[in-house]
């Protein structure tokens, strides 16, 4: 059971982020959607989509995004199971940055 999904998506300017978020939020098993634009090009824009729900169907998400003319660049975060586990900092993260 996927409960949270963070996607990096490339989409045309139209349908807008409003229409895209509405289309995703109407899918079964989804409680909320957040779409953030972080890069705008002449014809396309890059958006970060955060989806939260009780039982997210990834295949449905992919299908709906394709219908809206968008493509998934990468799946940046997935939280699944009975409880959402947040990312925690570890000493390794610190050493990796040094």
């Amino acid at each position: 059971m996927i409960k949270r999904l963070v996607l990096d998506v490339l989409k045309p300017h139209n349908p807008s982020v409003v229409e895209l978020s509405e289309a995703l939020s109407h899918l079964e098993g989804i409680d909320g959607v957040n779409v953030i634009i972080y890069e705008i090009d002449q014809q396309v824009e890059n958006v970060k989509i955060i989806i939260a729900g009780t039982s997210i169907d990834f295949e449905n998400i992919k299908k709906r995004l394709k219908e809206m003319g968008a493509t998934i660049h990468s799946v940046d975060e997935v939280a699944a199971g009975n409880r959402i586990v947040e990312e925690v900092g570890t000493p390794q993260d610190k050493s990796a940055r040094m």
Partner: peptide, 16 residues
């Protein structure tokens, strides 16, 4: 077609 070239994806069957 221009949009497909930019996005490097097939948009047939999409809402566009």
């Amino acid at each position: 077609k221009t949009l497909e070239d930019t996005m490097l994806s097939d948009l047939s069957g999409s809402v566009l």
